[in-house]
C-alpha cells in the first residue's frame, strides 16, 4: 500500500522537483534540539570553532527537543540527512539503538567523564546536569533537604512539575522517585501530589510559572541558578540539595550509519569533548561540561549544589518499564 502511494507521489515529485545541487565543500549535518542552535545557545559558537579546524561546513538542523529528535530520525529512517545526532539523553539511548540507525563510534572517549561513570560504545556524552528542585529564596526560607522532605512537606508550599508523558525532566523526576522509593513510589506520589500546583507539558511552562512568582518551587536542574547568577546577577533562585542524591541527565551525541564521511563525523565527536567545544557549553547551554575546559568555570558554578550521590538507571531498564511506571504515576496522581 505504502509503496504504491509513494511511487505515485515519487513520479509526481520527479516532474516538479529538480535534484538539489551538489555541494562542493564537505558538509557535516548535525541534528539537534532548537535551543542548542538559537542565537544565545552553543550552536553559533560551536559552528565557528569547528569550521576553523575542519575545512568543512557545519550545518545544524534543530527540532523541538531530544524526543522530537529521535522521532525525526525514526521518521526519516536510513535515508536521513543527519551525520550526527546531538542532544539525546541517556533515557532515549536504548530506543535510539533499537532503530539500528547508529554506528559505534570506535573512539577513545575517556576524556568525557560524567558522575556515575557513564560510557557507551555508540554515544558520547557532551554535557550533563543533575535534576533538582529550584526554589525562590524570597518565598521559601527552609527548602526541603531531601526527596523525603519534599514528598512529606507542607502541602501549602507548592511545586510545579513536568509531565513524564511529554517532557524529559518530567520523566527524570519519575525515575528519581522510583530510584529512591522503589516499589513504594506510588505511595510517595500520592503524598507529593498534594504539593503539586500543576503538571505542565514541558520545562518552559513550569519554569515560566516559577519565575513569574506563581509557584515557589519548580522541578529543574542544579545548574539553573547559574543562569540567574551569571546573566541576571541575582542569587534569588537556588537549587535544593537532597541528601539521598540527585538523578542525572546526560546529553549525548552519536554518529549515524548513513553518514557520507565517517572521518568527518568522528572528527566532530572528538572535537565535542575537546576544550574548544566544552568551553562553550556551561554559559550557553547551562549544563556542566564533561571534559576539561581551557579556563575555570565562572564563579557561579562553584556555588551550585554538588550532589553527593548520582542516580542513573540503565536505559534498557527505563525503556522496558517506562510505560508501566507512567501508568502507576497516572493512577497515583489522578486519585482523589
Amino acid at each position: 500500500m505504502r509503496r504504491t502511494v509513494l511511487s505515485i507521489l515519487a513520479a509526481a515529485a520527479a516532474l516538479s522537483l529538480s535534484a538539489p545541487a551538489e555541494a562542493q565543500e564537505k558538509t557535516l549535518t548535525v541534528y539537534t534540539y532548537e535551543s542548542f542552535i538559537s542565537d544565545w545557545g552553543p550552536g553559533p559558537k560551536v559552528k565557528e570553532a569547528f569550521e576553523k579546524t575542519c575545512a568543512c561546513k557545519l550545518n545544524f538542523v534543530g527540532v523541538a527537543d531530544g524526543v522530537a529528535l529521535l522521532t525525526r530520525l525514526k521518521l526519516e529512517g536510513p535515508g536521513t540527512d543527519a551525520d550526527i545526532a546531538l542532544g539525546l539523553d541517556t533515557n532515549l539511548i536504548s530506543e535510539a539503538k533499537a532503530t539500528g540507525l547508529f554506528e559505534p563510534h570506535g573512539l577513545d572517549a575517556s576524556a568525557a567523564k560524567v558522575p556515575g561513570n557513564y560510557s557507551d560504545d555508540t554515544f558520547i556524552p557532551y554535557d550533563y546536569g543533575h535534576f533538582a528542585v529550584v526554589y525562590d529564596t524570597q518565598a521559601i526560607k527552609n527548602p526541603p533537604k531531601s526527596l523525603k522532605e519534599l514528598v512529606e512537606g507542607d502541602p501549602a508550599q507548592k511545586i510545579a512539575i513536568e509531565d513524564p508523558r511529554t517532557s524529559t525532566p518530567g520523566l527524570g523526576l519519575l525515575l528519581w522517585v522510583k530510584s529512591v522509593y522503589g516499589d513504594k513510589a506510588p505511595e510517595a506520589w500520592a503524598k507529593l501530589r498534594k504539593r503539586v500546583l500543576t503538571v505542565t507539558p514541558g520545562w518552559s511552562e513550569a519554569y515560566g510559572l516559577f519565575t513569574k512568582g506563581e509557584v515557589p518551587m519548580v522541578f529543574s536542574y542544579t545548574t539553573s541558578p547559574a543562569y540567574h547568577m551569571v546573566e541576571e546577577k541575582i542569587d534569588r533562585y537556588q537549587a535544593a540539595s537532597f541528601s539521598e542524591g540527585h538523578y542525572i541527565q546526560i546529553e549525548v551525541a552519536g554518529m549515524l550509519k548513513g553518514t557520507g564521511d565517517k572521518d568527518l563525523a568522528k572528527q566532530f565527536l572528538k572535537f565535542m569533548v575537546s576544550p574548544a567545544f566544552q568551553d562553550i557549553i556551561p554559559t550557553t547551554n547551562w549544563m556542566m561540561p564533561v571534559a576539561k575546559t581551557s579556563a575555570p568555570l565562572p564563579d557561579a558554578f562553584n556555588k551550585l549544589v554538588q550532589p553527593a550521590k548520582t542516580f542513573l538507571m540503565g536505559s534498557d531498564e527505563v525503556a522496558r518499564n517506562r510505560q508501566a511506571w507512567i501508568d502507576q504515576w497516572l493512577t497515583a496522581m489522578s486519585m482523589n
Binding site: R165, R193, V196, P201, L209, W329
Partner: peptide, 9 residues
C-alpha cells in the same frame, strides 16, 4: 488543560 488542570486527572 495541562498547565491549569493541576494534574493528569
Amino acid at each position: 488543560v495541562l498547565v491549569l488542570g493541576g494534574g493528569p486527572a
